[in-house]
Amino acid sequence: MNLQPNSRPEQTLTGTSTYGRAPRMAKEDRRDQLLTTALNAFADGGYHTTSMDDIAAAAGVSKPVLYQHFPGKRELYLALVEHTLVDLSAKLDHSLASSDVNRTRVESMINTHFEFVEHQPQAHRLVFSADLLAFPEVADKLNDFYDGIAGIIASVLGPNVGLPHNQAAMLGRSLVQMVQTAAVYWAQHPGSVNRQQAQQQVFRLAWGGISILDEDWQ
């Protein structure tokens, strides 16, 4: 499922007016529609001011239908977080597995994260919002996300530079969070450099540090 905002807020994924009754759907299709609608609603109105009534109306369903899928707003938000992080993890995993050349792996990982920040800004802001990180469940999901990607990087980095897995995982997590921070800063300052330049600068910093660990790692 692609949790992208609809180009026209008055339309649902099915093309039905958000103020009309949505047609019947298979359970999973309905869940996907509700997640997409909730993402748009939270992005437009903010998590705290958006109600389940708002989301049900935007999706064209009754509140009982919405509650059949999600017991409450918090559970709906956590489902959005989980979906987004699973999707991003899979993309980062794929980018690291797409080549046997380590330089290309790092470039691809950086590109994947910048692409996520640029093309899914609502999902990114919702998941990585400092305000919503106060939810312990969100912090736990983010920690699992970072640890998972760090572990994948460590499985490549450790053998190449002769580091134990736990040390390589620490460096892998540092790399992922550096890229995340840089991508967010770039998105918040669009006039600084273009995306290609930003990615190149982040890559030079990341690759320069990796190269110091082992000058023979190519």
Rank of each mutant, 00 (worst) to 15 (best):
F42A: 08
G162W: 00
L34R: 02
P159G: 00
L163H: 07
I110K: 00
E82N: 14
I212F: 06
A123F: 08
A22S: 12
S17V: 03
T16C: 06
S89V: 06
S174M: 09
G72I: 03
A139H: 08
Y19W: 13
T49W: 14
L66H: 11
M170P: 03
M170R: 15
A57T: 15
G45F: 12
K63P: 02
Q122D: 04
H119M: 05
S174N: 02
V86R: 05
M109S: 05
P136F: 00
D32H: 12
G60N: 06
T14W: 13
A139Q: 14
W207Y: 00
K141G: 02
I55A: 03
L92W: 06
Q11A: 11
L76Y: 02
L3Q: 03
A154F: 04
R21N: 05
I210C: 03
F114G: 02
T36D: 09
L205Q: 06
V184D: 03
Q122I: 02
K63T: 09
R125V: 06
A38T: 07
E215G: 09
T12S: 11
K27T: 14
Y146K: 12
H119C: 09
P64T: 01
Q33F: 09
V117M: 04
A139C: 04
G162I: 02
Q201R: 08
G20T: 12
S129A: 11
G46F: 07
G208L: 02
A154Y: 04
V184S: 11
A59Q: 07
N160S: 10
S129N: 05
T16F: 10
Q11F: 10
H94P: 04
I152Y: 09
G191A: 13
F70T: 00
G45C: 10
E118Q: 11
F114N: 01
D100A: 14
R204F: 11
M52K: 03
R173A: 10
Q167L: 14
L88C: 02
I55V: 09
E107M: 09
E115G: 10
D100G: 12
R204K: 10
F135E: 06
L132V: 10
T16L: 08
K27V: 15
A59N: 07
Y185N: 03
I212G: 01
S17E: 07
N143M: 08
V156C: 04
S99G: 03
P190R: 07
M178W: 06
P190T: 12
L80H: 07
F42W: 04
G208S: 03
M170E: 10
V156W: 14
E107V: 06
T181H: 12
Q4S: 13
V117A: 00
D131I: 09
T112D: 07
V81Y: 05
F116T: 00
L163C: 01
Q33M: 14
G60H: 00
M1V: 11
A139R: 14
T49M: 11
F116Q: 08
Q200G: 09
P190M: 12
M109A: 13
S192I: 14
